[in-house]
Each structure stands twice: as C-alpha cells, then as structure tokens.
C-alpha cells in the first residue's frame, strides 16, 4: 500500500516535471539558433533517462505517455501528440535496450535516445504527410542529435548520481 502510493507520487512528480520541462523548452526553441525543423534539446528526455535508471521501465513508460497526453491537452495540438509519442516511445525503447548493454555510459545512451527520438518524429511526419521525401530532414537532425544527446547525457549523469531514490526505505 505505502509502496504503491510512493510509486504513484514519484511518477506523478516526474510527469509534472517532464511536462514543465517540455513546455519551457517550447518557449525557447533551439531552432532560432539553428534553423532545422523539429530540432530541440530534448531536456524532457532527462526524466525518461532518470526513470529508466532509478525506477523501472514500466514507470518510465507511464511517465512518458502521461507527459505526451497532457502535453497535447495543454498545447491543444493533437497532431503534435503523434509526433511526441512516436519519438518518445522509440527513444524510450532504444534507451531501455542500450542501458542493458555493458560498457556504455549515459552519453551513448542519451545520444542514441536523441537519434531515436528524431527518427520517430520523422517517421510520424512521413506518415502524416504521406511523403517519404521528408526523410531527407532526418540526416541533419541525426547529426545534431549527437550534440543534443551529449548535452542531455552530461546532464543526466549529474542528475542520476546526485538524486538517488532511497529504494530501501518504505
């Protein structure tokens, strides 16, 4: 009972945090600096990485889906839901797998996550716009994801180390 309440509140707090981060990030779009459609730092991914490392895959999935749904409600944009969900789910799956690979650090995990996120978004765009030629946008986005992924990777290393959840205590 206490355990499930703790788990629920953790996930709720992290969902609120992820939502706030992605809204804030939307206010200061990175595409002002680099004109590339779909480019963003992906700071909300930090929450996913944190949940994957410190909670569980199930919790991370719940947080991600809640964040995307709430984000679509807040932003009032249903097409954006398809983009954020496809990108987020692909990133989550990729990072979940890579966290099981020995010898990787969170840098590599986050870079792969950022690349997967961009790939998912472009796949959604290809579906929505029914035009495979959009894939050309993926090339610069993938190259940029090495940088954005390294930034979020460095941030997630600090976050995961400094904020441990006390798993043992009830």
């Amino acid at each position: 009972m206490t355990h499930s309440v703790r788990r629920l509140t953790r996930c709720a707090v992290l969902t609120a945090l992820a939502l706030a981060i992605s809204v804030c990030e939307g206010l200061v779009p990175l595409s002002v600096l680099i004109p590339l459609p779909g480019l963003r730092l992906g700071l909300a991914n930090l929450v996913t990485v944190y949940a994957l490392c410190r909670l569980s895959g199930r919790d991370a999935l719940g947080i991600l889906v809640s964040r995307c749904l709430l984000g679509a409600v807040v932003g009032g944009n249903l097409t954006a839901l398809a983009f954020s969900l496809s990108g987020g789910l692909l990133a989550l799956g990729t990072m979940w797998l890579l966290l099981r690979v020995p010898g990787l650090s969170l840098f590599g995990v986050c870079i792969a996550g950022a690349a997967a996120h961009n790939t998912g978004q472009i796949l959604a765009a290809m579906g929505v716009l029914a035009s495979p030629a959009i894939a050309i946008y993926l090339a610069p986005l993938l190259a940029a994801s090495v940088l954005t992924g390294a930034v979020t990777g460095a941030a997630s290393i600090l976050l995961v180390r400094r904020v441990p959840f006390d798993e043992g205590k009830p």
Binding site: L52, C53, R54, L98, L99, R100, V101, P102, G103, L104, S105, L106, F107, G108, V109, I111, A112, A115, L138, A139, P140, L141, L142, A143, S145, V146, G149, I157, V160, R161
Partner: peptide, 24 residues
C-alpha cells in the same frame, strides 16, 4: 544498469556516435 554509474564517455559511446553519424 552500470551505465548509470559511469561519469565519463566510454569507447562504446564513440561507436554509438559513429553509428548515428553513419546513419545520417
């Protein structure tokens, strides 16, 4: 995960970067 304990990039991270750039 052991990845959560590391603070520095590993050679395998470089491989991830190379793979992403190759895909691009």
């Amino acid at each position: 995960s052991s990845a959560a304990d590391r603070t520095r990039p590993t050679p395998l991270d470089g491989l991830v970067v190379l793979a992403v750039l190759a895909a691009a």
